[in-house]
Design a protein around this nucleic acid. Structure first.
Length: 787
DNA sequence: GTAGCCTGTTTTTTT
DNA sequence: AACAGGCTAC
């Protein structure tokens, strides 16, 4: 036992000490997987393996950064390659670009670049999109690439009608990418996998160089990634993969669970280590996770257990509406912080889709609770930033057609759609990039004299900019902004809204460039900068150094952990998502997604759903998710809004009716009982939670529901908003004055020494005997002591 | 050719 | 609600 293995469990040490030969680590949530991986790298280095012989592949930059910093603690400054699959491929492709038909300075299209390229490819291919959509075509082509299917093969395959159209667009799109010297995200994997397959000497060289390959989240690999990893582990099959089939949530991106399930078949000599003990969560949380995931059929049974001390019961809470949910959660966070044992960074709020963070965001902002959204509006997706990036892209790669399209008339310089169309035609006819076509503008007869002049002056501008290609990013950017009068352009085109400030964003962008310059002082770093920007996601922007509440999707939350977690909007059509309900496989993936969410929590967890949810602008009745019926409700704290039905009563038999109209009029149910109730065909027997002995509370949907009563809420169900408290609170806030004496259950008597803020934000600084504390009056558990 | 208005649509998840 | 694409008035 040495320093590196001494704090490990037997199973963990077993994995860490395995160096040569294939290794499969099946690691449940919170089982110390990252610890094992990082310790293993340190152990390998200690055993004399050279750092450059090791490559560790992850799916996100954040995971790679985390790994890097933890390895650094054990073995500082070792040049072990750690990074994402996409970055790995991008770097390798730089070296071998010509072998796949690219130049070394190729560009990486982000999704919006691909989208516009795809639109043009669809137009150029001349296919009818009446029975399909650009999205479907994009997705079909993406799937093909993930499965290593070339345009030629796809054309031979007989598939669905939509795929036939996609098969026609695919070669055109691919040709356009090559002309533009560009790749999309899928191409990074696709090109590299083909490169390895078609060039045995390249493959064996890399296999020889990278003797030890590690793959994190192996359950999320698709066929292209699988092919890459396998190709690099032929002569030196020292492939170590970690993963958890129960956490596979990227099937929609082509991830193939068989890669991990069949790993033992691929490598019969594999050593398999199972890490099942959970060190993260309370038994209560783990139990919820376990009960839930048991409902998946296609799964290897696995026991999840922990020795962690007992904690609080997991809460399952119903809200009247999405807004109430947001308010309730914000209040709960406030309360838990005031109670003194939590701070903003302890909380995460997770949801199925980004759009759901909006109301939460609002509620948190109202209360002045600091928060960060992982994957909100992506910085590099903002218009003004994309504009500048497009110029940089075009400077780096003059063949970047998408960039040229964006840039040629931004700021507006009189080159309109017609002109552009004619240039495009010329470019297509001659199979040359757009910029090349603009240089030969004199040959384009259809253009007016005026148009030719304008285009020529754009070309001159471009040439002035291109001179700066080797300058520092900062110089280049400042020169560019000045040259195109970008600030003036933004000023005259930005409406009077305060919300987004494009000029500030431009400044922030310059700062990012300056920072990059400092980190890459040597060569012209433009290409590296653009690659970096293309391959970072905002998931990576998550900073745990900030003391903020984190809002994120469950996808983005994978690999993270938080002391206190809220999972919101666990409702039918949201989770499971509408589009995932058709087949069992997708449904199980949705269940795994919730499983991932649940297992992020360390000490405290609330799962919630609402009766009403606003979606695309309007309020719609929401139906609780079927997954909620799969949780161990009798071990949880279940809080429902009074007057609502109890979905999880014994009568609830796993299958919910197709038309669950019942819930759509929640106000219909009163606590007076059976008024207006009739039977609903096929509906489950519904019993209000407040009175389980009542006559089944069902009614016919064409009987007008009883007039809405002010919904009464059981005491524990009541989630007071600040204004509720202000209106109904025992002590009016105005009664608190500086100098007032108050009593607090925990701190005893104290004196108010300062008062600030208004309404719900009214805050008092109170000097107690022992300490000085600051409370929001609306929430604080204090009472005024009359003197 | 451009700006601004209007209308119809909406992949959820991410490298 | 947010946005892209189309249309109209300048």
């Amino acid at each position: 036992m040495d320093a590196i293995t001494k704090d490990l469990t037997v199973a963990q040490a077993e994995a860490v000490q395995h160096i040569d030969g294939p290794l499969l680590i099946i690691a449940g949530p919170g089982s110390g997987k990252t610890r094992v991986v990082t310790h293993r790298i340190a152990h390998m280095l200690q055993s004399g393996i050279r750092p450059w012989q090791i490559a560790a592949l992850t799916f996100t930059n954040k995971a790679a950064d985390e790994m890097r910093s933890r390895v650094d603690l054990l073995a500082p400054n070792q040049p072990v390659w750690m990074g994402t699959f996409h970055r790995f491929c991008a770097q390798q492709l730089r070296r071998y670009a010509p072998m796949v038909g690219l130049a070394e300075n190729y560009s990486i299209y982000d999704s919006s670049d691909s989208k516009s390229a795809m639109k043009r490819a669809i137009a150029a291919a001349g296919v009818s999109t009446s029975h399909t959509s650009p999205e479907q075509i994009t997705s079909a082509i993406s799937n093909a690439k993930n499965r290593l299917i070339t345009p030629e093969i796809m054309a031979q395959q007989t598939g669905r009608a939509g795929d036939t159209v996609a098969a026609k667009v695919y070669p055109v799109y691919q040709q356009q990418l090559l002309t533009a010297n560009a790749v999309d995200f899928d191409d990074l994997l696709f090109h590299f996998a083909r490169l390895l397959r078609e060039n045995p000497e390249v493959r064996s060289n890399l296999d020889e160089k990278l003797k030890y390959i590690m793959v994190d989240e192996y359950q999320d690999t698709n066929l292209a990634q699988y092919a890459i990893v396998r190709a690099l582990s032929v002569d030196h099959p020292n492939l170590a993969v970690t993963g958890d089939p129960d956490q596979s949530v990227y099937g929609w991106r082509g991830a193939d669970l068989n890669n991990i399930l069949d790993f033992e078949k691929d490598y019969p000599s594999v050593k398999t280590v199972r890490l099942e003990q959970n060190y993260r969560s309370t038994p209560e949380i783990l139990r919820v996770a376990d009960q839930l995931i048991r409902h998946n059929r296609r799964r290897k049974q696995k026991k999840l257990f922990t020795d962690n001390p007992t904690g609080e019961a997991v809460t399952l809470r119903q809200y009247e509406s999405g807004y109430k949910e947001a308010d309730g959660i914000a209040d709960e966070i406030d309360n838990q912080m005031i109670a003194g044992n939590a701070e903003p960074r302890d909380f995460a709020i997770m949801c199925r889709m980004n759009a759901l963070t909006r109301s939460i965001e609002h509620a948190l902002r109202n209360r002045g609770i600091p928060y960060q959204i992982v994957n909100g509006l992506e910085f590099y997706q903002r218009k003004e930033i994309k504009d500048l990036l497009a110029y940089l892209h075009l400077i780096n790669n003059p063949r970047h057609d998408v960039a040229l399209h964006r840039v040629i008339n931004t700021p507006t310089r009189g080159i309109g759609a017609k002109t552009l169309e004619r240039i495009q035609r010329f470019a297509d006819d001659h199979r040359i990039p757009m910029l090349e076509a603009t240089r030969r503008v004199d040959e384009i007869d259809s253009l007016s004299k005026r148009a030719k002049t304008l285009v020529t002056s754009f070309v001159r501008l471009y040439d002035r900019l291109a001179v700066k290609a080797t300058a520092t990013l900062e110089d280049m950017l400042r020169f560019l902004i000045e040259e195109i009068k970008f600030v003036a352009y933004l000023e005259r085109t930005t409406p009077e809204q305060q919300d987004n400030n494009p000029i500030a964003n431009v400044d922030e962008f310059i700062s990012a460039a300056v920072e990059f310059d400092q980190m890459h002082p040597e060569d012209g770093s433009l290409e590296a900068f653009l690659e970096q920007v293309a391959l970072v996601s905002d998931t990576d922007a998550f900073e745990d150094s900030n003391n903020r509440v984190t809002l994120m999707t469950m996808h983005a939350a994978k690999g993270l952990e938080f002391p206190r977690v809220f999972i919101i909007a666990v409702e039918d059509n949201l989770l499971p998502h509408r589009r995932s309900k058709e087949d069992e496989t997708q449904l199980e993936e949705e269940r795994r997604l919730l499983f991932v969410g649940v297992t992020r929590a360390e000490q405290w967890l609330q799962i919630s759903y609402a009766k009403l949810r606003s979606f695309r602008g309007e309020n719609q009745p929401a139906i609780p998710s079927m997954f909620l019926g799969e949780l161990p409700r009798d071990e949880m704290q279940v809080v429902e809004v009074k007057g609502s039905r109890n979905f999880f009563d014994d009568a609830y038999d796993d299958e919910y009716p197709d038309s669950w109209d019942l819930v759509q009029e929640p106000a219909a149910v009163t606590d007076t009982g059976p008024a207006g109730q009739t039977e609903v065909a096929d509906g489950p027997r519904i019993i209000p939670m407040t009175d389980q002995s009542a006559i089944p509370d069902v009614y016919h949907d064409d009987v007008p529901p009883p007039k809405k009563k002010k919904p009464k809420v059981s005491i524990q169900a009541e989630l007071k908003t600040a204004s509720d408290l202000l209106q109904s609170g025992a002590t009016p806030l105005g009664a608190y004055r500086e100098g007032s004496t108050v009593r607090h259950d925990e701190y005893g008597e104290g004196t108010i020494i300062a008062l600030t803020g208004k309404g719900p934000k009214r805050t008092a600084k109170i000097q107690f005997e022992e300490t000085e504390e600051t409370f929001r009056l609306a929430f604080a558990k204090i009472e005024l002591v009359e003197r």
